[in-house]
């Protein structure tokens, strides 16, 4: 019984990790229609930013404030990765709107360049990010069930990010402009919205969210140049399954794949579990190619 309860928690936890990793992609791919293969590398940049922040805290502030580094790392990962995303948008991605297949190749190239850059700067082996002490250990619920603080923290962070993105897109002026441009670019332009500015900002925000994911992932996994490649397939699957262009779809997609993964994996093994999840997703998309949620649109070519 304990095992099943813990398995349910694991499912939620894996879902939250996927959600966090896919949220940025839901914006750059989902809203902007850029097949952003460099999304994984944005996650990697976030992770390396966390590593740098940790090292700066060790060098300049000493042990006393070490535990606070993670609090500083989250917004810094967002800002730095967002800035890298901004640079990419104004230099390369802006030429790729409406050219979906070209965007796939170009961003894949970017991803390889960024990986090699990380290798040159930080070296090929993984680096170690020490988790802050307040995230070690876990809540003991029943004698046999321990819920790690790290995973609880990631669930909380994912929830906060979703809430933040929702509020931003639906309640703020900038968010309204983003939605206007993504839904009908020429109409938005005629109404005096600077679409260039909105595009760069949207891409930067999507990248920044990937940076937060990278920061959170340092708690669970490895930090190396190829960190992003571990997540890129899963994140695309989440966005496509959920329904491209819908944030709520990303939440549903992450939950379905996360819980599916842990459940199949529990009754079979890690490799077969993954195969079964892929199979289920493919079958589902045959039946409903739009994913869980689709946008009702009057535009004919969608």
């Amino acid at each position: 019984m304990d095992t099943y309860l813990l398995q349910i928690f694991n499912g939620i936890s894996v879902s939250s990790v996927l959600l966090l990793a896919a949220l940025g992609l839901a914006i750059t791919f989902g809203l902007m229609k850029i097949i952003n293969m460099a999304h994984g590398e944005m996650i990697m940049i976030g992770a390396y930013t966390t590593y740098m922040v940790q090292n700066l805290f060790i060098s300049f502030l000493g042990d006393r404030y070490f535990d606070l580094y993670f609090i500083a790392a989250i917004p810094l990962s967002f800002l730095i990765t967002g800035f890298v995303g901004y640079l990419l948008e104004i230099s390369i991605v802006k030429r790729l709107y409406g050219r979906t297949l070209d965007s796939l190749l170009a961003t894949w190239g970017i991803s390889l360049i960024l990986q090699q850059l990380a290798r040159n700067i930080f070296g090929a082996p993984n680096v170690d990010v020490k988790s802050p002490a307040w995230l070690n250990g876990g809540v003991v619920v029943l004698s046999n069930i321990q819920l790690p603080y790290k995973r609880l923290f990631i669930i909380l962070l994912a929830a906060l990010c979703i809430a933040g993105v929702y509020l931003f897109l639906f309640k703020s002026d900038s968010g309204r402009r983003i939605r206007a441009v993504m839904q009908n670019r020429s109409m938005a332009e005629s109404l005096g919205i600077n679409t260039r500015k909105v595009d760069s900002m949207t891409f930067a925000i999507g990248s920044g969210l990937a940076g937060i994911a990278g920061c959170a992932l340092t708690l669970l996994g490895s930090i190396g140049p190829t960190l992003g490649t571990n997540y890129i397939v899963d994140t695309f699957m989440v966005v496509v399954l959920g329904g491209v262009g819908r944030i709520i779809g990303t939440v549903a997609g992450a939950a379905a794949i996360g819980i599916g993964n842990t459940t199949f994996e529990y009754f079979t093994n890690a490799s077969l579990g993954k195969v079964l999840v892929f199979l289920a997703v493919i079958l589902f998309l045959q039946w409903k190619p739009q994913g869980f949620f689709s946008i009702s649109s009057r535009v004919l070519d969608e």
Partner: peptide
């Protein structure tokens, strides 16, 4: 290689 989530395997280890 590249597998990133071991919560299920760890849970199985705990049970066994």
């Amino acid at each position: 290689m590249g597998h990133t989530d071991y919560s299920t395997i760890v849970n199985k280890i705990k049970t066994a």
